[in-house]
C-alpha cells in the first residue's frame, strides 16, 4: 500500500479528540452504581476477561506454573466461577505455560517484538513472533514502534504491524500502543486506527512498564475508535486495557465503559480483556463477600 492511500484511510476517521470532554464522559460512566446481582455477574465477567500476567525479569518456571494453576481454578471450593481468559508471559516461558494450560480453555499469550521498548530490528521481531507461536502461544501481544509513530512515520508502523500479523498465522494479535508514551488522545486515536487497519485483532493500551498505563479516558478513546472502525468496516476488534487495574471497582467501571460505548457484544472475553496481575484476588475477595456477607482477609486467597 502506498503512503498516500494509507493517510487517506486514516483521515477518513475524524481524528481529533477533546481531552476534557473524553475525561468527563469516562468519569460519568465510571460513576454507575453497580449493586447486588449485577455486581456478582460483573465480578465473574471481569474474572473471565483477565489476562493473568507476569512480565518480570525474575520470572521463573515455578512462578509461571503457579500462576497457570491459579488461572484455571481461581477460587477454592465449589463455586460457579470462571477461569481467566489467558495467561500472559515472556517468550521464554510460553512452553511452560502451554504444557499446563493445554485443553484447559485458558489461552497462552506471549509478549513479543522486543517488548516493552520495541527497539529491535523488524527481522528479529518477526523471528520472535514465529518462535512464540511455534512454542504454543495462542495470542501475541506486540508493541508498536512509538519512536517511528511520533516521527510521523505511520507507514512504517502500519507495515510493521501488518508483517507481525502475517507472522502470527492463526494466533491472535494484540497491538500495544503504549498510550503513556503517545501522550495525547489525538495520537491514541490515530494509533488505534492504524493498528486496526493493519490487522490487529485487539488493541491494547500499555505494556505496564510505562506510567500512566491504562486509564478510563484513554480506554474510552480507544473504544470509540473501535466503534468507528466497526461502523466503517463491519469488523469487530477487541480491546485490552492493561496495567493499573487493581480493584473490583476499577474493573466494573471498565465494564460500564464497554457496555455503554460498544454494547453487549463486546462484553465477552472474545472482545474484551483486562491485563492484570493483582486484580483477580480483589475480585475473589469481593465475590466471597457477596456469597457470605463477610470480607475475608487476604490470607485466605492464594498469592500466585
Amino acid at each position: 500500500m502506498n503512503v498516500n492511500s494509507l493517510l487517506t484511510s486514516i483521515d477518513s476517521f475524524h481524528l481529533s479528540v477533546d481531552e476534557i470532554g473524553a475525561k468527563e464522559r469516562a468519569a460519568s460512566l465510571a460513576s454507575r452504581s453497580i449493586k447486588k446481582n449485577s455486581k456478582v455477574q460483573a465480578i465473574k465477567l471481569a474474572a473471565s476477561m483477565i489476562d493473568l500476567t507476569t512480565l518480570e525479569g525474575k520470572d521463573t518456571e515455578g512462578k509461571v506454573l503457579a500462576m497457570c494453576h491459579k488461572a484455571v481454578k481461581p477460587i477454592k471450593g465449589n463455586y460457579d466461577f470462571p477461569h481467566v481468559a489467558a495467561v500472559c508471559v515472556y517468550p521464554n516461558l510460553v512452553k511452560v505455560a502451554k504444557k499446563v494450560l493445554d485443553g484447559s480453555g485458558v489461552k497462552v499469550a506471549s509478549v513479543a517484538t522486543g517488548f516493552p521498548g520495541g527497539q529491535m530490528p523488524l527481522k528479529l521481531k518477526i523471528e520472535e513472533v514465529k518462535l512464540v507461536v511455534k512454542n504454543g502461544a495462542d495470542e501475541v501481544d506486540m508493541v508498536i514502534s512509538r519512536g517511528e509513530f511520533l516521527d510521523g512515520n505511520y507507514k512504517y508502523v502500519f507495515d510493521e504491524i501488518s508483517a507481525v500479523k502475517d507472522a502470527c498465522g492463526e494466533a491472535h494479535l494484540k497491538v500495544i500502543l503504549e498510550t503513556g508514551e503517545l501522550e495525547t488522545f489525538d495520537n491514541v486515536r490515530k494509533a488505534s486506527i492504524i493498528a486496526m487497519l493493519a490487522g490487529a485483532d485487539f488493541i491494547k493500551t500499555s505494556t505496564g512498564k510505562v506510567q500512566p498505563a491504562a486509564t478510563l479516558p484513554v480506554t474510552l478513546v480507544m473504544l470509540e475508535a473501535i466503534r468507528d472502525f466497526y461502523n466503517e468496516t463491519g469488523k469487530i476488534i477487541g480491546m485490552k486495557p492493561a496495567g493499573g487495574i487493581r480493584t473490583t471497582k476499577d474493573a466494573i467501571a471498565y465494564l460500564c465503559l464497554v457496555k455503554e460505548t460498544l454494547g453487549d457484544t463486546w462484553l465477552s472475553p472474545n472482545y474484551f480483556r483486562i491485563g492484570a496481575s493483582t486484580l483477580l484476588n480483589d475480585l475473589l475477595m469481593q465475590f466471597q463477600k457477596e456469597q457470605t456477607g463477610f470480607y475475608q482477609s487476604a490470607d485466605y486467597f492464594s498469592n500466585d
Binding site: 486496526m196 493493519a198 490487522g199 463491519g234
Partner: peptide
Amino acid sequence: MIFREKSTAILSRSN
C-alpha cells in the same frame, strides 16, 4: 478506504 487485504470484507458505509 484501504486496509489490510487479509481482513474481512469491507461493508459499505450505508451498511
